[in-house]
């Protein structure tokens, strides 16, 4: 009988018990183990004192570079600030405000790098007047020779007109001023919107601008 009982006992052993015995965990240990399992602390206590951080002049330089980079990026145009919050009560005027507070990109992207859908009309383009400035005269007058001819013509006509009535010329002059202003706007826009802002040199800008003014005035006086 004793043999049989022994066999029975051996059979009744569950596999978990065998594993735990094999691993050296006693009967009572399993219960105590399951009871103590709890989520870890956010800041578990350090068992050992950690090694001190490596510090040298090179490390200090790296830190300086790191902080400089961070500060530069924070102040750069690439750092996009959240818009100022609008009031909860919607007002009619808000529609216009929102439109105006849109910040544009402060840098000129090379659009080859980006997918086409990211390219949006800037508000400067959107604000451009519908009426296109008269470009015919400007386009024709590219060479200096034609310009000189026109100036000569102008002088002749001026000599003829001096004795004519003064009032009409004054009116004409006013109109002309307006036109020139509008067209100057156009000239500025034309050069501002140029593809790459870095291309137009600082010294080149004003000279072109002046020559345009001369040409334009010439054209309008002609007309």
């Amino acid at each position: 009988m004793s043999i049989g009982r022994g066999r029975g006992k051996a059979r009744s052993k569950s596999s978990i018990n065998v594993i735990s015995e094999n691993l050296g965990i006693g009967r009572g240990d399993i219960v105590s183990l399951t009871n103590t399992i709890q989520p870890q602390d956010t800041f578990p206590p350090l068992l050992r004192q950690p090694q001190p951080l490596l510090e040298s002049t090179q490390h200090n330089y790296l830190i300086a570079l790191k902080q400089e980079f961070r500060n530069y990026m924070r102040d750069s145009p690439y750092h996009i600030q959240p818009e100022t919050k609008r009031s909860k009560i919607e007002r009619y005027s808000d529609r216009f405000k929102q439109y105006n507070t849109h910040k544009e990109l402060e840098w000129v992207p090379n659009w080859n790098m980006f997918p086409g859908e990211l390219r949006m009309r800037t508000s400067r383009q959107a604000n451009r007047p519908e009426i296109k400035p008269r470009m015919v005269g400007r386009r024709q007058d590219h060479s200096d020779a034609t310009l000189m001819k026109r100036l000569e013509k102008l002088q002749k006509s001026e000599n003829l007109n001096t004795e004519d009535d003064q009032v009409s010329e004054d009116d004409f002059g006013l109109e002309e001023d307006d036109d020139v202003e509008e067209d100057l706007d156009y000239v500025q826009n034309y050069y501002d919107d140029d593809y790459n802002a870095f291309d137009d040199d600082a010294d080149e800008g004003p000279t072109i601008f002046l020559s345009q003014v001369v040409k334009l005035t010439a054209v309008f006086i002609c007309l």
């Binding site: 690439y78 996009i80 818009e83 849109h102 910040k103 990109l105 992207p109 790098m113 980006f114 997918p115 086409g116 859908e117 990211l118 949006m120």
Partner: peptide
């Protein structure tokens, strides 16, 4: 809004944090 999203993506693509893939023949999706 569209404008803000555009600006973000431009900045992120320029600094190579985000990349894009274009697919589709007629209607291109990015």
């Amino acid at each position: 809004d569209r404008r803000t999203a555009n600006q973000c993506l431009c900045v992120l693509i320029k600094h190579r944090f985000v990349r894009y893939e274009e697919s589709g023949e007629k209607i291109r999706t990015v």
